[in-house]
Amino acid sequence: MNRRHVITAGIAAALLALAGESALVPAANAQSLQDRLSSGQARDARDSGDVLPALRVISIVRSRYPGAEVLDAELMRGASPQYIIKILTREGRRIDVVVDARTGRILQER
């Protein structure tokens, strides 16, 4: 019984340590989380003509990176809304492609 308590306490301590570390990470990313549009908000922006459809933007990115796998697409709010399309290239590189959501122009690759 005592051994079980020691193991449980060790696991709990490890989880708390991990939780403490991960609690620091969102503070740095809090702004970016607030800047992301929800899927409903993105759909509304697309339907109102404020931004291009995500599938069109993904098509533009795929033409720049043939054979790349699209991992994620996010629409970021702002005066100049941007899509961030996360891809995995055929060579195995993970790249974030930043695209102007109104024009479809690729602004940055990081």
Rank of each mutant, 00 (worst) to 15 (best):
G40S: 03
V61Y: 14
A79F: 07
R36V: 13
S38N: 06
D47C: 10
D96Y: 04
T103W: 05
A101P: 03
S63L: 10
V61C: 12
Y83T: 03
G92K: 03
I11T: 02
R90M: 07
I87E: 09
G20M: 03
L71N: 13
A42R: 12
R102H: 10
Q34D: 15
L18A: 10
L107Y: 07
R102K: 12
I58W: 00
R62K: 11
L18Y: 00
R90E: 15
L88Y: 05
L52G: 05
S48V: 01
A17F: 12
A42W: 14
L16Q: 07
L55M: 04
L71K: 15
R90Q: 12
I7P: 11
G104T: 04
D44N: 09
L107W: 06
L107G: 12
A14D: 01
E91W: 01
I11L: 06
V70L: 02
I106H: 06
L71V: 14
G78H: 04
A14P: 10
D96G: 04
S32D: 14
A13H: 11
R77H: 00
L75M: 02
A30Q: 14
H5D: 11
L18E: 04
K86Y: 10
I84W: 11
R77N: 08
Y65P: 11
R110S: 13
V6P: 06
L33C: 08
Y83L: 07
A68T: 10
S48I: 08
V99R: 13
A68E: 09
L33P: 14
